[in-house]
Design a binder for these strands. Structure first.
Lengths: 144, 144
DNA sequence: ATAATACCTATTGACTTAATAGGATATGTT
DNA sequence: AACATATCCTATTAAGTCAATAGGTATTAT
């Protein structure tokens, strides 16, 4: 039940973008260095976020990326579902309708459906803005 | 975020044991055939359930397995945490204290901690007895 | 003794993950 | 137009994990 680096890196990249949002485009080089993540590897994650309407690109000289929406409109659930493919704990939940020949009488299916639901509801309840706010509050603890 | 066959097979095996509990020991051959799972592979999963105090073994002729507790005392969470190692969505949560050098200021850590919590709470809310009861209710739909 | 059972450890093929690599394409600046 | 700085695209690969399969050893009721 692990989330892959793809999803974790995507989340960190988007938090970075949200934190450094000055209405301009931010070069991947900058993000990769700040987050200490392979730039080449991030390049492969970006098309997913692009297609999903999470990220906007500017190509060429002084190009880069910025969020396609406000940080409060982008949830962790949206990011992870797109990068991980889905949050389904079992493969059969990824096809609708369920293609497993046992699904009509499967006693464990309702458990997995319920699990996917609580996972998605939790992750959808957290926006990029929430993460930034939390992070600010935590830093505050040390200042006082 | 997938649950492996190890965890899924363990769950199915234990549901099978709970359903066919006649206070005797049930041979693995029987379970494997009924569930259509490789007997040899199940053999590797059993030691985990044994160590975890979920299963009791009887060796030799007419040997087999039975649940170590009542079906209402065994939760899906207990089964999956033991077979999968943990339900942590990221590896750093598996060591206490957290060994990641960034953990003191990591902005995503609270998200993963929260996710592990909702997953465990959900899975701990379902017992083997609950699954059997659900299954009976569903069959009832067709009888009427 | 025998047959039926559980227990133990090693091996393996297929697949996935997490990168790395090398270019092609686009675009603002000079 | 040339150039530098970016993104975009596709292929390759090393390492690791998964899901078994295999072959034996130990135990016990009959």
């Amino acid at each position: 039940m692990k989330i892959s680096t793809k999803g974790r890196y995507a989340l960190r990249m988007l938090i970075d973008l949200a934190e450094h949002n000055d209405n301009g485009f931010i070069a991947l080089k900058e993000i990769a260095e700040r987050q200490d993540i392979s730039k080449k590897y991030l390049e492969q994650i970006i098309p997913i976020l692009n297609r999903s309407g999470i990220l906007i690109t500017n190509r060429g000289y002084q190009g880069g990326y910025k969020l396609a929406k406000n940080p409060e409109e982008i949830t962790v659930g949206e990011i992870l579902r797109n990068t991980e493919g889905s949050m389904a704990p079992v493969a059969c939940l990824e096809q609708t309708p369920n293609q497993c020949e046992k699904c009509s009488y499967c006693v464990t299916l309702p458990i997995w459906q319920g699990l996917e639901k609580v996972v998605n509801e939790y992750l959808d309840s957290i926006s990029l803005q929430d993460i930034i706010n939390q992070s600010k509050n935590r830093s505050g603890d040390y200042i006082i």
